[in-house]
Design a protein around this nucleic acid. Structure first.
Length: 707
RNA sequence: GUGCCUGUAGCUCAGUUGGAUAGAGCACCUGCCUCCUAAGCAGGGGGUCGUGGGUUCAACUCCCGCCAGGCACACCA
């Protein structure tokens, strides 16, 4: 009722002015939704606000205002000072089905950046929260008619990639050729039997045929097979394990420590095997991440690569702007200041940074290299089309079946038919709250470079991190895992994840667990089902469980990841919402079997045609379910404005809950009165359509036919 | 030290322009599957909304103080 509420606010503001001579901005007419359907479909406590200014009782004012005529409202009732609005139901439903409550879109493109996983290890549950929040925001924005571009930033030049390169090159002694083989082996991973011994022998056979290419540590097929078994034959899992070994390896000697810098330098120089290896690892890792996110229905438009930001001259252009605007200044090498030899941004004059002990931020190091924050400013300028340059683009070449091509940036020349990206009107960066300080600096940079409007339209979508519930970590330790945690750390309620320590729950491992559990449940209910069908349904359940789990918490709440809670399918979970739709669909299917005239939830016209005849016979409780959907556009709008996406998730949960209750109290097919039955069938069909559509379009939760 | 965030039922959490009786899930107890799938429903126990002030017709919600916890404040990203 987004547009409807706007018109009601205006009408009420006019009414107040005409009746009392009070000028009231229409957006100050408060609107709420009543706790129960007997109190109407929408309500305003406007009379309370007027009571003081008019020096009269709210109930009296409400009684006078109740005579106002409002579009689509069949009755305005004054109750205890409130004005309760009862809508014309046919009008409301047809507006809802026809998208009539969504305001006309206003041009500009919103760029949403999310996921941004360092391409050196497998994605973990923390990355899932980021991606689910980002993707849900994208879906909600699109639902409201906004143009959206999804960017997934790839930092392919940083130390994190260098570390895993060190692992491959120095610890395992592999060359590019070997890594290509390893990737090949993983890609052609056989469908693994559950038995570990069998798995081992399969991997060993694989490796034997290739072992000549594994010169040192991996030459022992026994050891390598064991590692591959523990990694499920996944390249990103392999890197996860390897990355955790690099930290301790650096600690072993000064020489080892030097390997990191040497590797970084060789990567930056390019044109050598180390750089080639880094690029290979990064691109394969991105492929792994795309695959992981695809399991959840999360996709991207473009993958901007950090290496291209440098090679395309973005940074050089940004640096010029920074210098020209005076946003950065050089600290002479012979000065006494601590940042001597650096280009720094002064922040102490800005309100946002008041009270900081040292408000200067180094942008260019004394050795002439640019910091991450500098590159991020260049990237941000480009997103707003303020850099005067663009990337080139080519297909990423992910090779994932049934998945449209994703574009990646390039610094040389664009591929054929390459679209262009960037130049958005609004930018939302989905990054966890620990980066708030840096995001603030990026925003301040825009302002100081003379782009205050863009700075205002640059939004950091900050959310709290995902940590691991200590209870869960202790269980893992009991099973033999070693994370090097102190007693002190294990006394706290949660433990922060750390890729460096290998401490975290991998996204694909969680999805596997969810799918296994779902498959078991499905098989218990329908043992005759084909394996492929079971798998398909299990996948939908796993997606729902995970997406809802990541969405149900407020963004400022630390999610202490707990496997038991994440694996739940009962209560307030994704499958509960799916089940409501499946139930509704079942009633309709059974109804069709019994020869009743059943409206098709997929066909809006049919539903609309049914409305005038069936609506008068609707039970009030049925309307109580349907009226919740009238609020959806308002809830989504609010969720997007405040970036509290849990509002949307919980709203749909309430709708599902209302239907489950209705389902038990009102038999549909057993109802003997034909008119009532018809009205109930319509209720069920409308519900099935509205919840299915909302789950898929807003939350990215697919609904299986049966479960 | 400075800034941001959090504190609501045994546990995990909702409660959003201040408004109708402080809710949900889990756990626990009692019922409901010859009846449209029990991944469900109905009912029960369980609350000084961290704490002390203030503003207001009205405060979990806004303001100030205090207590407890988390995060951030690099020439790392």
């Amino acid at each position: 009722m987004l547009t409807a509420v706007l018109s009601w606010q205006e009408a009420l503001a006019r009414e107040v002015e005409a009746r009392y001579g009070l000028r009231l901005p229409s957006d100050e007419v408060p609107f709420t939704f009543p706790p129960g359907p007997e109190l109407g479909d929408a309500a305003t406590p406007l009379a309370f606000a007027l009571a003081k200014r008019l020096r009269r009782a709210p109930a009296q004012i409400a009684g006078e205002l109740a005579g106002v005529a409002l579009e689509g409202v069949r009755e305005v009732r004054a109750v205890g000072g409130y004005l309760n609005l009862f809508v014309d139901r046919a009008w409301a439903l047809s507006a809802l089905l026809g998208g009539g409550f969504i305001p006309a879109s206003r041009g500009g493109k919103t760029i949403v950046e999310h996921t941004n996983i360092n391409p050196n290890k497998a994605a973990h549950v923390g990355h899932l929260r980021n991606a689910v929040l980002g993707d849900t925001l994208v879906r909600c924005l699109k639902h409201l008619g906004r143009r959206v571009e999804v960017q997934n930033y790839i930092d392919d030049t940083g130390v994190q990639v260098a570390d895993v390169v060190v692992g491959f090159e120095r610890i395992l002694g592999l060359r590019v050729f070997d890594i290509r083989n390893l990737i090949g082996i993983c890609a052609s991973a056989p469908h693994l039997p559950p038995d570990l011994q069998e798995q081992m022998s399969i991997w060993q056979n694989h490796l034997n045929s290739l072992s000549i290419s594994f010169p040192q540590h991996l030459a022992d097929p026994q050891q390598t097979a064991a590692l591959l078994v523990s990694c499920c034959g996944r390249f990103d899992f392999f890197c996860w394990e390897l990355y955790a070994k690099v930290g301790p390896w650096y600690e072993q000697s000064e020489e080892n420590k030097k390997a990191r810098l040497e590797t970084l330098h060789r990567m930056e120089q390019g044109g050598n095997e180390t750089a080639e290896m880094a690029a290979l690892i990064a691109s394969e890792m991105v492929r792994c991440h795309l695959r992981t996110m695809e399991r959840l229905g999360i996709r991207y438009d473009v993958l901007p690569h950090e290496s291209d930001i440098l090679k395309t001259g973005f940074w050089a252009a940004c640096f010029e702007k920074l210098k020209a605007s005076g946003a950065v200044h050089y600290v002479p090498e012979d000065s006494e200041e601590k940042n001597r030899g650096c280009w720094v941004m002064a922040l102490q004059e800005s309100d946002e940074f008041r009270g900081m002990s040292d408000a200067d931020k180094v942008i260019v190091r004394s050795n002439g290299t640019v910091t991450y924050i500098g590159k991020d400013m260049a990237y941000q300028l480009w997103k707003f089309g303020l850099l005067g340059r663009d990337f080139h683009y080519r297909p990423f070449g992910h090779g994932i079946p049934d998945y449209p091509e994703v574009w990646r940036t390039d610094w040389r020349a664009s591929g054929e038919g390459a679209p262009s990206f960037g130049a958005g009107e609004r930018v939302v960066n989905v990054i966890d709250v620990r980066q708030s300080y840096l995001q603030k600096i990026v925003k301040e940079g825009l302002r100081q470079m003379g782009h205050p409007e863009e700075a205002e339209r640059s939004v950091h979508f900050a959310y709290e991190m995902v940590a691991l519930a200590t209870r869960f970590v202790k269980e893992e330790i009991a099973k033999g895992a070693k994370f090097g945690l102190s007693e002190e750390e294990l006394k706290k309620p949660f433990v922060e994840m750390s890729g460096r320590k290998g401490l975290g729950f991998r996204a694909d491992a969680l999805l596997d667990r969810l799918e296994d559990r779902a498959a078991t449940e499905i098989e218990n209910r329908a043992p005759e089902l084909a394996k492929t069908e079971i798998h398909e349904r299990a996948r939908a359940l796993a997606t729902a469980a995970l997406r809802y789990y990541m969405l149900k918490y407020g963004k400022n709440q630390v999610v202490a990841f707990d496997l038991e809670q994440a694996l739940a399918f009962e209560g307030e979970t994704g499958p509960y919402l799916q089940y409501a739709v499946v139930r509704a669909a079942n009633i309709l299917a059974k109804g069709r079997e019994r020869g009743f005239a059943v409206p098709d939830p997929g066909a809006a016209e049919g539903l609309l045609r049914e409305i005038p005849e069936a609506l008068p016979h609707l039970d009030e409780e049925a309307w109580g379910v349907l009226t919740l959907f009238l609020r959806t556009p308002n809830v989504v709008h609010q969720a997007v404005e405040s970036l509290d996406l849990n509002l949307a998730a919980r709203h749909l949960y309430e709708a599902a809950q209302a239907f489950h209750t209705y389902y038990h109290a009102f038999p549909v097919l057993q109802e003997e009165n034909a008119e009532k039955r018809r009205a109930r069938l319509l209720t069920v069909a409308l519900f099935a359509r509205l919840l299915r559509e909302s789950l898929e379009k807003l939350l990215g939760i697919p609904v299986p036919e049966r479960m």
